[in-house]
């Protein structure tokens, strides 16, 4: 059905405005990161100085964020993929309940989760001071996304029949898992992995509460810079963050359907 001309114009306007609303500040931030003096505008000249300062000041947060994201990915893969198969293979009221409980951390604000973690484990000093504390929070928060992504793809490819096929040929349960389940779930695993890394790198709500002066991640550093640095440095830092996260987001878009189905 072709829309009316006026309707069309209205829809187009709203769409372009929405796009501008989302993109113009991002563009301004990128520009500011390269501008000598943002207040005076681009006429003040372009520079890489701010990027350099950010790398000097904050490279440890960048490294820690990458390390935590990869660690989170490793743990969610290890725990999540086998569990997703176990939950998906025989849906019942019990598995629904387990799924519900396991996905609760997504429905509860990060602040509350972080508070609970601190109250329960804050007393264990070594744990509290180590990046593992943040990693634990990130796993808690991202695990449901990995579970859902893998479970969605397992349901979509009817992996049960494939397993039965492998079983009829003599494969043991463990052989079936590695020969048939994992290879045929790789789309979901990849989508889940991208989601986990993206979420972990950008996670702030939990991390702000869980971090210590020695365990600062990129978003924590960002918040610092927004509060205490000049706009150009904050922008350059944000730019660094974009450079890390945008490729992930683009990759996620390529797997959009799988993840959308899974992460909702």
């Amino acid at each position: 059905m072709k829309p009316h001309r006026l309707t069309f114009a209205f829809q187009l306007t709203v769409t372009l405005l929405a796009c501008a609303f989302l993109m113009v500040p991002a563009g301004a931030s990128i520009l500011a990161g390269f501008t000598v003096n943002y207040f005076r505008g681009v006429s003040s000249g372009l520079t890489l100085k701010w990027i350099g300062e950010v790398l000097a000041l904050y490279s440890d947060t960048i490294a820690l964020s990458i390390a935590i994201a990869l660690g989170t990915l490793g743990v969610t893969l290890l725990i999540g993929v086998p569990a997703a198969w176990a939950l998906a293979r025989r849906p019942s009221r019990l598995t629904r309940l387990v799924e519900e409980v396991v996905t609760l951390p997504v429905a509860i604000p990060g602040l509350a989760l972080a508070l609970a973690l601190i109250l329960a484990y804050g007393g264990i000093r070594e744990f509290r001071m180590s990046p593992l504390f943040i990693l634990t929070g990130h796993v808690l928060y991202t695990l449901p996304f990995m579970l859902r992504a893998v479970m969605a793809v397992l349901a979509a490819v009817d992996v049960r029949t494939l397993e039965e096929g492998a079983a009829s040929l003599g494969a043991s349960p463990l052989q079936r898992f590695f020969h048939v389940v994992v290879p045929n779930a790789r789309g979901g695993i990849l989508a889940g992995a991208l989601m986990v890394v993206t979420l972990s790198i950008g996670e702030f709500n939990l991390t702000w509460m869980l971090h210590t002066p020695l365990t600062k991640t990129l978003p924590v550093g960002l918040a610092d810079s927004y509060a205490s640095m000049r706009l150009e440095i904050a922008s350059a830092y944000t730019l660094v963050f974009f450079v890390m996260i945008v490729p992930l987001l683009v990759a996620l878009q390529l797997f959009g359907r799988t993840v959308q189905g899974a992460a909702r």
């Binding site: 029949t161 494939l162 039965e164 096929g165 009829s168 040929l169 020969h179 048939v180 290879p183 045929n184």
Partner: peptide, 13 residues
């Protein structure tokens, strides 16, 4: 046993 499934259950991988 050998089994032929209705959907064939051939491994796409």
């Amino acid at each position: 046993v050998g089994m032929v499934f209705q959907s064939y259950a051939l491994f796409p991988n």
